[in-house]
Simulated scan of single mutants.
Amino acid sequence: MYEHAPHHRLPLRRRNGRHRVAVAVAAAAAVAAGVLAPTAAFAGGRPDSVQSSLDTLAKDDGVPAALAAVKGRDGRTRTYTAGVGDLATGAKVPTDGQIRIGSNTKPFTAVVVLQLVAEGKVGLDSPVETYLPGLLRGDGIDGRGITVRQLLQHTSGLP
């Protein structure tokens, strides 16, 4: 499940058939994507929109913990936490905590690739070899015969 030190583990609990931790990951992804952005209130010592959103996740949505790091325009990285890192002990969320998000990266990757397609920088029916020369070669695999579309649809035949 997790390959990190025990103090970095967030308990995995189910709610409505989904993992609560996934909600925290989605919140962190929203921060990274700029959906949630730090406000000027941060400098005044009051919670800003990121902290408020994470607090809401932990308090109202039942997420045990949430962690986000946001790099501001000034180059400073601000770390935000909410909830508890360990339900049994009530330990704080570690600011260097990590959550394995596994397959959740696939939709984010697809969105970025499709944005590049919309900008005319990537062709869905172009071979992978066009963009990543030599990466998919060997053991019966040839990137010259696998398209970007096949990768996104998981129909390329790659193991």
Rank of each mutant, 00 (worst) to 15 (best):
E3N: 04
A5M: 08
H8F: 14
L12C: 00
R14Y: 01
A24W: 00
V25P: 04
A26N: 10
A26C: 10
A27D: 09
A30W: 09
V31L: 10
A33I: 07
A33N: 09
L36K: 00
P38A: 14
P38R: 13
T39E: 01
A41T: 10
F42E: 05
A43E: 12
A43W: 04
G45L: 10
P47C: 04
D48N: 05
S52K: 12
S53Y: 10
T56E: 11
L57Y: 10
A58L: 05
G62F: 02
P64Y: 11
A65P: 01
A68S: 08
A69R: 12
G72E: 14
G72I: 07
A82L: 05
V84S: 09
D86R: 14
G90R: 15
G90N: 14
A91G: 08
R100T: 02
N104E: 12
T105Q: 12
T105R: 15
T105I: 08
K106C: 01
T109M: 13
T109R: 14
A110T: 02
V111L: 13
L114P: 05
L114I: 07
L116F: 03
V117W: 15
E119R: 15
V122L: 11
D125W: 07
S126C: 06
P127A: 15
V128I: 15
E129W: 06
L132A: 15
R137M: 08
I141C: 02
R144P: 01
G145I: 00
G145L: 06
Q150M: 09
H154T: 03
T155C: 02
S156M: 08
P159V: 09
